[in-house]
Each structure stands twice: as C-alpha cells, then as structure tokens.
Design a protein around this nucleic acid. Structure first.
Lengths: 338, 338
DNA sequence: ATGAAAGCGCTAACAG
DNA sequence: CTGTTAGCGCTTTCAT
C-alpha cells in the first residue's frame, strides 16, 4: 500500500508536506507542490480514510435509515439524499428497517460504531426517540424525515399529512361519497395520527358521522388489508363504505388486491384514494387518486439540513420544513352511484 | 470518547484483554470477562471502526454501484443486496451512476479511499473495465451485476437477455405481428447487445426480414424515445411497425408516453413489450407484457458471491450465475389486426 | 515554507 | 490466561 511516506520519500519532502498538499492547507511553495503531486500520480497514491478518520474524527460517511427502499416514496427520498450528498463529497450508507424497531436499533449500533458524520432517519415509531438520542449523545446530527417525534427538538422534513388527508376526503365527499372508510397505519407513527385527524375532522366539517367500524389500522408495509376488507364487506349492504382512504401507497395496493380477491373492482364497486404515488407507472397508465408528496425534495432538503448542521459551529435553532402534498385525481375515485 | 483504555482501567485489566473480550477471541477467564463486559455497559463503550480498520484492513463496508435506484429493477437489486449484507453484519454504501462513466469513476475514487471490503457494480458500459481494474488492483473483490464485461474474469450475476428477448419477440410473432421494432439501449452495454441478438435471431428463425430502420438505440434511462417514435410513424402506413420491443422498463415507459403524445394508444394501435417489471403497480393493475427478471435474487446472490470471495483464502475460479427471465403476458400486447 | 514528534484507538506479535 | 510493545496511516502541535 502506498502511504504519504512513500510520496514523501519520492518527492524529497516530509510526510507533513505531503499531507498539506493533499488537504490543500498551509503554504506550500508551488514547485514542491508540483513535485508532491507528481509523486502522488506516479505512485497512484490514495488517502486512507480510516487513518484520516482516526485523527480528524470525520468519516465523510452519512447514514440514511428508511423503512423500505422498495416503497417508491422512499426510493425517491433516497435518490434525493444521495444526489445531494454526492454533490459535496459524502457517501451514504443505506438501511431498511422494515418498520421494525429492533432492526432499527441494530442499525443504529452499527452506525454508532462506523461513526458516521450524520444521520437521516424515518423513525419506525414513537419509541425510536430513545434510539435517536443515542446518536445525539455522541454528537451525531440527526435529521428526521417523513415522521415527527414528540420531544425530538431537532431538524425535520415532513409532508403535510393533515392537509393532504383533508383534501383527499373532501374530494371523496364532493364525489358524493358518505360512507368512507380509513385504513390507516399504526398510531405510533405521526403520519398515521395526522392522517386520521384529517379524515375525522373533514367528516365532522361535512356533518358526516364518524364510525369506529370504518377506521382500522394495519402496518404501513405489510400486505394484510384482506381481513379489514373482509370485515367491511360483511357489513349490511347499506352500511358498507363506498370509498376507502388508504393511508399510504402500500396499503392502497394491498387494499385494491384484497378488493379484487373478493370480486370487487376499483372504482366501479368502490373508490380508493391514498397518500403517495406509485411510480413510475402512474406517469403513463394513471390509476390511483393520491396525495402525491415531493419525495425527491424530502431527501434532498433533509440532506441539505444535515450538511448545514454538520458544518455549523454553534448550534442554531431546530428547523422544520413542511412540504405540501399535491392531490392528483385519477381513475380510482369516481362519483358515488346509488 | 470512551476507549478500551477507559474500560481497561475500570475493569482492572490491560487494554488487550478488553480487545479480546470485544472480539471474543483468545481465552479469557469467565470472571474477568464479566468484569470487562460490565465496564463496557457502564461506560457505554462503542468500538471505533476507524481504529479497527487501520489495523485490520477491513472496514465491514461494502459498496453497491447501480445506475439508478429509481429503476424498480435496481430498487429490488439493492434491497436483495442490502438484506444479505445486513444478515452478516456488513453495511452498504449506495451509489447511482446514471449510466455516466465519469460519475462512475468518481464514485470509484471515493470507494478506493474508503477502502470498502468489496464492490457490487452494474457497469455503465464496456469502458468500465479499466475502472474496475483499479479496484481489483487494490485486491478489492468485485462482483458484476446485470451486465457483463469482456475480459473481466471475475464473479458475475446476470439475466438471460438473449433468451428473454427470443421469447418476447416470439410472443409478438405468435400474435401475428410481422413488423416489429426494437428500441434498444446503447450497444456498449452487454444486455443491449444480447437483446438485439435475441431480436435479430428470432426474426431470422421466423424468416422475417431485419430492417435497420426498425432498430434504434437510446439511453437506458433517458426519456427520449420520442424522436425514435416520430421516425417510425413517419414511415408509409404499410411499413410502420405494429409492435415495439423496448429493451427495458424505462425505455418502455418513454416509448408509451411518446406514442400517447402522438395520439397512439397501447395496445389498440400498437403493441409494446419490454424487459423488466414496473412494480409495484403491475401487481394489481397489470399492463405491460414483460420479460420479468428476479431482481431481488440478483442482489442477494451477488452479495453472496461477494461475501464468499471476501472470506476465501485462496482465490477460486470465477463463478457466473445466469438467472432466467419469466415472460408475463399482460395487456400491452394484443393480436395483430389488419 | 517545511519538518519532527506525538498520538488518534485499536490489534498483531510476542512474552510470561 | 493476561500483559507489553509496537505500529497501522494520518494529522495536530510545536519548532525552525
């Protein structure tokens, strides 16, 4: 392995001078700088990050902890984050927690050992706070993405789940639907709580009743809407919902599949709307009516916040970015027909 | 920062003993082991990877270089690779080259500096070989994924592009299509060459003519099928293709969009088939007829090969895994109607 | 403008 | 079963 000592010898300078040239700091005479650079090229020298990190306490590695990169929303988040990181010379470690708190904890252990310079995380739930505190105790900046945590007191990038839900449900009401079911994510996740709040308050504002039997919770990513659908369609005909608000794209897919398995078609028999796009196909074969969130921006902005936080000297106020969703009406929602 | 010295002091042993406990090697008396472990817990000690790497020459970090995680095929590849890596305690750095050789080279520079233990890469093209040699010169094991490289002589996981193309084109011929266009990826990528070969030979076997004007090349990920489509539909009516074989999912999307922009609908006016699924929507709103590849397995198997390669002492023969695609007929391809 | 010395946190090699 | 010494490759600090 080629080290700065090899370069030093070849260029007839001290290792320290080589270090200065590499890091472009300190005053170096132009001619010696040239000599060193030539030696570096000749020997194909590559700095050893581990050695650098040991002294500098910086790894130039960032961590991105998502629930599942396979969800198109997070795919784009990842892309946005990665692009921004690359732009300023950071590399990013990717982790999928699958909404599993234990996995999340394990990843945080690994990350703590790797001593990344910063972390962007979509927490698996409210209990994630204590895991995240472990990071902050080591002075590792953390930016929350997509999901809030009470008492977090740090930077965060989220969508407006409440507003998106309001508009989605309003849309269904405008179409004439009165019996609207919500298939929500787990209530220990902030987005689920907000989406429920949007759903409930919109019904209230339209003086529509809120029935517990129309509200259910399933995991954001598991494919298990079937039992919920079964319950809903076993209600007396006149009480069956005519529209379903699925809290995210995976739930929507699971819901539509379940409906199909019971011989119900969307939107002919029932309308379905949800949060988050199902790209890339929606672009040419539009189907699902959604509250679309700017996922790429989520990632990019979170990375931007993180970088600013890493580079600042004194710690400034926590910043919160809220991105509005865009309602895109497509085929899966149609007027209520008696 | 808590170091092994702090632990050593508290547990009344030497740092070396602490190291032995952490790495679980060497014989340690059970009681001292307990003392050390307690001290570790009490002080919240976390090993410093940088220091470890400096001596061990191992980072326990792997690199995954893809063209674009946003492509559902690569999303799944990434997930497969990450899952496997996690299973054995490795972390993975993700990079998107966007089919850009320069970006690829930059990433390899960073990776060389980070000194990852291994690399899985979908090369941007044949010219990538010399970049990859830079890795292998540093004794970093490399596994190729999805795309082959002449003279690579290492482990590789690919799909059977030739076979998939044959079946796709056969399918179109069986439907009665005779004028079938190919919109291919760049010919400096092995999959593009193989898919073209499959296309050409299948036509030959059916005694159908091969016309250069039916064959075009665009980038695998750029959204620029429009000019190709324009050329095709400006042909005399009797010469216009009645079906298009798009070499991958992104080209298919771009193609269908372009067709739509010219007022042509799929499959009513023209059939389209392609390589690689467009998940997750195909699962409930099936549209595109494809040669579907087991992307998750691509990633998982590549990671498995990589790990084996990293852990072996003597270097064994290069291994090549070829995964067969599965033809899934959906709505985008219909019988030729005169 | 350049260099020497010391040390970052850990482990390999040897000693006892 | 446990400890000592030295060194991984680099940078910080202090000299010159």
């Amino acid at each position: 392995m080629v080290t700065i000592y090899d370069i030093a010898k070849l260029a007839n300078v001290s290792p320290m001078t080589v270090s200065r040239v590499i890091n472009n700091n300190g005053n170096i005479k132009e001619t010696t700088k040239q000599r060193v650079e030539n030696a570096i090229k000749d020997l194909g020298y590559i700095p050893n990050s581990a050695a650098r990190s040991l002294t500098s306490k910086k790894t130039r590695i960032l961590s991105l902890i998502l629930t599942d990169i396979t969800n198109p929303f997070f795919t784009k988040v990842a892309r946005g984050a990665e692009d921004k990181a690359m732009e300023i010379g950071y590399q990013v470690l990717l982790s999928n927690t699958d909404e599993d708190a234990e996995k999340e904890s394990e990843y945080i252990n690994m990350i703590l050992s790797t001593r990344v310079d910063g972390v962007i995380i979509a927490p698996t739930g409210d209990q994630s706070l204590k895991e995240i505190e472990r990071l902050r105790n080591q002075n590792i900046p953390v930016v929350l993405i997509d999901r809030e945590l009470d008492n977090f007191n740090g930077d965060i990038v989220v969508g407006d789940s409440y507003e998106g839900s309001r508009k989605l449900v309003e849309h269904l009401i405008e179409l004439g639907h009165r019996r609207i079911a919500l298939i929500n994510g787990p209530s220990n996740i902030s987005t689920a709580r907000e989406r429920r709040r949007g759903y409930v308050e919109t019904l209230k504002l339209s003086s529509l009743p809120i029935h517990d039997r129309y509200i259910s919770e399933i995991n954001y990513k598991q494919d298990d809407a079937k039992s919920v659908i079964k319950k809903l369609i076993s209600l007396p005909k006149q009480e069956q919902p005519t529209a379903i608000f699925a809290a995210n794209n995976f739930i929507a897919i699971s819901t539509i599949k379940a409906l199909q398995s019971f011989g119900l078609s969307v939107p002919n028999d029932i309308s379905v709307v949800s949060f988050d796009d199902i790209e890339p196909i929606d672009s040419f074969n539009p189907f699902l009516t959604v509250a679309s969130q700017p996922a790429y921006s989520f990632g990019m902005l979170a990375m931007q916040l993180l970088i600013q936080r890493m580079e600042e000297k004194e710690s400034n106020e926590p910043r919160k970015i809220v991105l509005p969703p865009e309602i895109i009406v497509r085929k899966s929602s149609t007027p209520y027909k008696k």
